[in-house]
Nucleic acid binder design. Structure first.
Lengths: 216, 216
DNA sequence: CCCCTATCTATGCAGTGTTTAGATTGCCTA
DNA sequence: TAGGCAATCTAAACACTGCATAGATAGGGG
């Protein structure tokens, strides 16, 4: 126990220890294996100790979710910056979303199960998710402004890309895509690259109107 | 206790009662509220009774998942039959997926959380999901065969549509899309209709190649 | 130097999944 | 019709969980 940087209280920075221990447990044994009692046991403290850092179990997951969305946002921002034109921005964002999931498997698992964070009791869970979506929305609107995407209400296109990213990662985390990739002899990240490329090709073709007809 | 159709044993068809009670509980209070003890209590039986019908908690969820995928398959099949051309088939399938979620909220919640069914212990959970996907795959291949979709490996397009459907429903169940629709003054099903329409418009434009380049 | 407050321990309650041993009860057969 | 078998249910127990409470401890600011 060398005199570390910040060790504010008698037992070290338990809060940070619990968070990192939770991430490790999730990566190893899944989110179902995470209990405050087990984390406390692993940390060598009493079962009640975690409650001085997290009011309840959901608060720990809420912290993971908030941290995860911050990490995701920086990644998406970098992806947007690396693209050379508005359509490539869309493709890069889609790929970056999956790359984030690959690099932060524990975070994404919790982010895809927001009920773990008890959003009613911990509103920051809900709030944390808006920034990445707003980045995507602004990217769609920007692309429409320069005629790189079909004009009209951006909402359908936004939800198309957003759902696509979330769905792919969900299917990966839940198993089916992992399984399929083993059959195809590829990786989920590579598969998503081909999916994003297909999207890009569809978008780059002559313009059309994505608005729904008023009639039927 | 009138002499019902099938009441095989002394306490009625407890298995079916537990399943329907679980669905009702999920719809009312979420999947987190489902415990075998609570279901047993609600059914007026002892805590151990459910274990004579489901070897463990996961088996009950596994049964819900299997039932759900069967319901989903019939819905997707009907959607495919109602469409007038191969591209419309894709759109109808996307909308039907969301319509299924709207009509079977309890089933979809469990289907989106396959870990509840403990897939390692209950392989039927994993198996149940393949039929709907294969229907979508064959629809993509059929459309490619008549040049209604870009030619090449169907895998990217398949995962594009599949991820889109799963992602949209996930975002709905988890909250964000429900919230957004309240702001927009629309419903998730209507929103998905516009998304699917945007997809259809993109697909109907002049043909292109969705295959990823070998270089970069 | 002393107190104050954050932190941690100890303990207990209610709820959970699951197992075991034993009681009940309907059906099937002899 | 009587016997027995097997499916079903009860009762009780174990280990685990989240969480609340009361009290001990110990570092930092007055």
């Amino acid at each position: 126990m060398a005199p570390d940087a910040t060790r504010p209280y008698h037992h070290g920075d338990l809060r940070e220890l619990l968070l990192s221990s939770a991430l490790a447990t999730i990566t190893a044994d899944g989110v179902g294996a995470v209990s405050l009692r087990r984390l406390a046991r692993d940390a060598g403290v009493s079962p009640g100790a975690p409650y001085h850092h997290f009011p309840d179990r959901g608060a720990l997951f809420a912290a993971v979710i908030v941290e995860g969305h911050a990490l995701l946002l920086t990644r998406l921002t970098a992806a947007r910056g690396a693209a050379r034109d508005p359509v490539e921005v869309i493709r890069e964002i889609l790929v970056a979303y999956v790359a984030f999931a690959a690099d932060h498997p524990a975070h994404i698992r919790v982010m895809l199960r927001p009920e773990l964070g008890d959003p009613l009791r911990h509103p920051e869970v809900t709030a944390a998710g808006v920034d990445p979506v707003e980045l995507l929305r602004s990217s769609v609107v920007d692309a429409q402004r320069v005629d790189a995407l079909p004009p009209g209400d951006p909402e359908p296109l936004l939800h198309l890309f957003w759902s696509l990213a979330v769905g792919f990662v969900t299917l990966w985390v839940d198993g089916p895509i992992e399984t399929r990739c083993r059959v195809l002899g590829t990786t989920p990240l590579e598969l998503m690259a081909t999916v994003a490329h297909a999207v890009e090709n569809l978008l780059r073709r002559p313009s059309g109107d994505t608005r729904a007809p008023v009639g039927h």
